[in-house]
Every structure is written in C-alpha cells, then in structure tokens.
Design a protein around this nucleic acid. Structure first.
Length: 215
DNA sequence: AACGTTACCAACCGCAGAGCA
DNA sequence: TTGCTCTGCGGTTGGTAACGT
C-alpha cells in the first residue's frame, strides 16, 4: 500500500534551517496562527514539509520557549515525572512550561541518565541499579523499565495511568479545551516525592493564543 | 598545533491514533 | 462502518562544538 509521502521530497529542503526560513515561518504563523501544517509550507513560501515546519516551530521558534539551562527544580521534576510516565516526553513537557518534549528528551539522554547512573540508580526503572535489574519497578514505572519496545505495548502501563485519568497522550494536544462541557476534568492529582504532580494535560504552551504573545 | 574523542543539540523518520468523509 | 488523511509522538541520526591527548 504505502501511504503517500508527507511531502514532495524532491522539492523540499532538508537540514538546518536558515534565518530566512525561520522568519518566513514565524511571520506566517503570527499572521495566520498554527494549524494545517501540510499546507503551511506552500502558503508560507517554504520549501519544507509540514512536519519539518511544525517541529521547527514547536522546538525552536515558539515565542514562549524558555531555552537555557534546566534548573535543579526542573531537573528533579523531570525525574519524578519520568518515573511515573516513562518516556512520555510530550506529557512530561506539558508539566514544564517553556520546555519542549525534544528538549527534555535530549536533556534526559545526555544529562539526567548519566546523573542517575552516577547515583547508582537505573534510569529506566528508577530503582537502585542492582535492585532494578531484578525487580522491575511496580506499577507505571514498569513501563519505563520496558525495553524501548517502540511504544507498542511496553509503555501501556504508563499510558494506562494517564488514560485512567480520562486522557490520552492525544488529548494533551487535542486539548478539546473543552473544558467546555467535558464532564471529565483532565486532571490527575498525584503527589510523588513531595512534589505535587497535577497531571492535568494542558498543552505545553497553552495555545499560542495570541501570536502577539510573541515578544 | 593537530588529531581524536566525547557531548550536545537540532532535525529527520516511521508509526499510531484521531478526525472526517 | 470503513478507509483515508493529517497530526503528533518517540526514537534515532547527523552535525558541530568542546575537551583531552
């Protein structure tokens, strides 16, 4: 079968973004808002695929991004959240305003993993390295222990934790901000290690509501 | 000063799920 | 109800900078 490629690869640029491309993208989104990524590149006059534009915007150009070093607080929060959610970077990012899933994922892989290992903690199970090897973490944490089985079944448990709250990872973005009428509040109050993990799934950047938010 | 290695960040790829006709 | 399209997510890779020998 084969799905049609997300874009005409032959006519799209790849690799690092230029300043001009950034400017075009930002200008377009400021004027028209996000959405319809597939048609955006053409409309904005960019030789990029929609996916690429979305990623660039979300991970780099969004005006509300924090950028810069992670604080000790963020650090600990990421660890706690990862313990509960596993590699659900988008959900974790949702609890860290101004941070993107990609940024957190990178940070986890390059800093936190190492840090935990140095502390003698298995970064997947969040258990003492020796114990973790034999005793997988209970509950949701188990998902983190699951060998990255490509999010097929491995993280089902962590996902279940989230779903049980009436949300799916999709919801976070879907954000049917339905707040409006939805009888099921998208919240899940958790307190771990003294940190109140209110797992309400709000988009990382609650709506670029007003493009003007930029600057 | 040159070369090799390691660490970090940005971007790409493929898949799954939601929404719609 | 089914199939198709689009979006979003997570994993992985490539490029570059920093550091060490």
């Amino acid at each position: 079968m084969g799905r049609s490629p997300c874009c005409e690869k032959a006519h799209t640029n790849k690799g690092a973004w230029t300043k001009e491309e950034d400017q075009r993208l930002v200008a377009y989104i400021k004027a028209h808002g996000e959405g319809c990524w597939r048609s955006l590149p053409k409309a904005a006059g960019l030789l990029r695929c929609g996916k690429s534009c979305r990623l660039r915007w979300i991970n780099y150009l969004r005006p509300d991004l924090k950028r810069g070093n992670f604080t000790q607080e963020e650090d600990e929060l990421i660890i706690k959240l990862h313990q509960i959610l596993g590699n659900k970077w988008s959900l974790i990012a949702g609890r860290l305003p101004g941070r993107t899933d990609n940024e957190i994922k990178n940070y986890w892989n390059t800093h936190i993993k190492r840090k935990l290992i140095a502390r003698g903690i298995d970064p997947r199970t969040h258990q003492p390295a020796s114990a973790g090897a034999v005793a997988p973490a209970p509950g949701a944490a188990a998902s983190a222990a699951a060998p990255s089985s490509h999010r097929q079944h491995g993280d089902d448990k962590a996902a279940a934790v989230v779903r049980s709250s009436g949300c799916s990872s999709r919801d976070s973005s879907g954000d049917d901000d339905s707040t409006s009428g939805s009888s099921v509040p998208h919240q899940h109050q958790l307190v771990v290690g003294g940190i109140d993990l209110n797992l309400s799934l709000s988009p990382p950047t609650s709506q670029p509501s007003s493009p003007a938010a930029a600057n």
